[in-house]
Amino acid sequence: MRVRARFTKLGKVRFVSHRDLARIWERALRRADLPVAYSGGFSPRPRFHFGLALSVAHESWAEYLDVDLVDDIDEDTLASLTERFSAVLPMGVDCTAVAVVPSIGGISLQEAVTSSTWSIGLDGGSLDDAAAAVDALLDAQSVFITRERKGKTVNDDIRPYVRSLSLDRSQVGCDRADCAGAGCEHVPDDPGVVLRAEIGTQPRTLRPAELIGALGPMWRERRVVRLAQWIDHEDGRQEPLALPAGPLPWLRTETCAT
């Protein structure tokens, strides 16, 4: 049986690396006392798989983990897992949803996910400067950047990866997944420039830092938050695992983020 968990990475834990997060989950899975499958060999490791990596210092409302279990678990146990995982994860890493997913024939999360939505805070210019930069990038047929790949410097056209890009002038700054919209109380005093971007992840992902670089040399990233990951299908797109509807009053992130 394969179980998929969705979780956050918010606040101080944003400085934890992907590798460290894997170790944190490894311990959490043992503490949650689940019948986790182990790899064989000299160093047996629990069998779990992350989706796309998140850069150190970036935050997220939508990280995913698939865990293979040796025994099936019942509905009640499944329903209790979000709470059980959160209790054994550090502040800022909260499990927000859990579901059973097909383990045979299912493709890996990393292959399945086709795009991510980001909130990208920027320093280095005014709202108008940002609007101009966004328009210039969207108007371009192709936008080449140089980046390192497998030790080689390559020139890549990143324009096809930018599915949407806009300056968030209305709901600036609030990136909570359960944002109440009008009247939202989480807007910071000085949100500065905040972009909303949907970035393609296939065949390889475009990193937010690379997108910022493509906007121009003056821009420096502030708060960067992944809001969602998406899987395309014929009728549109869906999240690997959606959040439960409504506000998330049990989130512990506020205490660690401050």
């Binding site: 101080k12 400085f15 934890v16």
Partner: peptide
């Protein structure tokens, strides 16, 4: 000092060692 420290952490190696939050 967190508000003053936080922007510096993006520039250093292994910033997780400065955040606390351990179990």
């Amino acid at each position: 000092v967190w508000p003053r420290l936080e922007p510096l952490l993006s520039r250093v190696e292994r910033p997780a060692r400065y955040i606390g939050c351990e179990d």
